[in-house]
């Protein structure tokens, strides 16, 4: 039923769940910055709605991390009272929005990765994680329809729109490598069937991405050797600025409520 049998497993799973939660929260925060600034009201709505779903997913994951940790930390404690060096999100989620094209490329890459990852997580031997994944995957699939539809329109659009998303793809591609650089924690959890193997997720991601890039007349950039490791709390310079904004109200008025 439940994969958590030893304190070591509980610690590893807590870390893993926080990686998922932080990626959802940070990306939600980035997307919400489009509210009132989208190129059209439909895109305002699109970014806002995806952001809201991601926030909901983050809350489910933080609540579970808190239970696993057993130290009484709540969703708010995880979101508002941790420092940059505690956040474990994938680096790509924290990168700036850029223009709408750059936001769409970032979103499409993250959607396709998360779609594959969460689909495979529905088979987790940890029942709670499998349940959260089953809920989230339905939402992520819808997000992927939106972002891949836009990527195709922009890539296969005007010279200008093609150029912008092609440039963004080259800029963002190095951050994909982190997702598929398996570390000891992921390996240990994968061996117990708690999380999928990174190789299986990568294969699924590439298979989903190829037809979309083809339709968008974009070329998959070649891999680079450098690895970012946001999931091990080694972040770009952008995360601290994002957190400063995200956390400022709660830090100025601890426990503030609507």
């Amino acid at each position: 039923m439940n994969a958590v049998t030893t304190p070591a497993t509980a610690r590893e799973l807590t870390t893993y769940v926080l990686r998922l939660a932080d990626t959802s929260l940070v990306l939600a925060q980035r997307l919400s910055a489009w509210i009132g600034h989208g190129p059209a009201i439909e895109e305002d709505l699109g970014c806002a709605n995806i952001s809201l779903d991601l926030l909901g997913q983050a809350r489910l994951l933080y609540a579970y991390a808190g239970e696993l940790e057993g130290a009484g930390r709540t969703e708010d404690d995880f979101a508002y009272l941790r420092e940059e060096c505690d956040f474990l999100n994938a680096t790509m989620a924290e990168l700036p929005n850029g223009d709408f094209g750059q936001t769409i490329v970032r979103q499409c890459l993250l959607d396709l990765w998360r779609l594959e990852l969460f689909e495979q997580l529905t088979q987790s031997t940890d029942m709670r994680l499998a349940q959260i994944a089953a809920k989230a995957v339905k939402e992520i699939r819808y997000h992927g329809r939106y972002s891949s539809g836009w990527l195709v329109r922009l890539g296969d659009g005007t010279d200008e729109s093609h150029q912008r998303v092609a440039t963004a793809l080259v800029m963002l591609w190095p951050y994909v490598a982190e997702w598929f650089a398996e570390d000891a924690l992921e390996q240990a959890l994968a061996e117990r069937g708690v999380v999928p193997s990174v190789a299986a997720v990568q294969a699924g991601f590439e298979a989903r991405l190829a037809p979309i890039l083809r339709a968008a007349t974009l070329t998959r950039p070649s891999n680079v050797d450098y690895r970012w490791f946001g999931k091990r709390a080694q972040h770009s310079e952008h995360l601290s600025h994002l957190l400063a904004e995200l956390q400022s109200l709660h830090r100025a008025h601890p426990g503030a409520q609507w």
């Binding site: 009201i41 439909e42 709505l45 699109g46 779903d53």
Partner: peptide, 8 residues
């Protein structure tokens, strides 16, 4: 018109 509307 839009994949997203007034509620999720």
């Amino acid at each position: 018109l839009s994949e997203f509307g007034s509620t999720p």
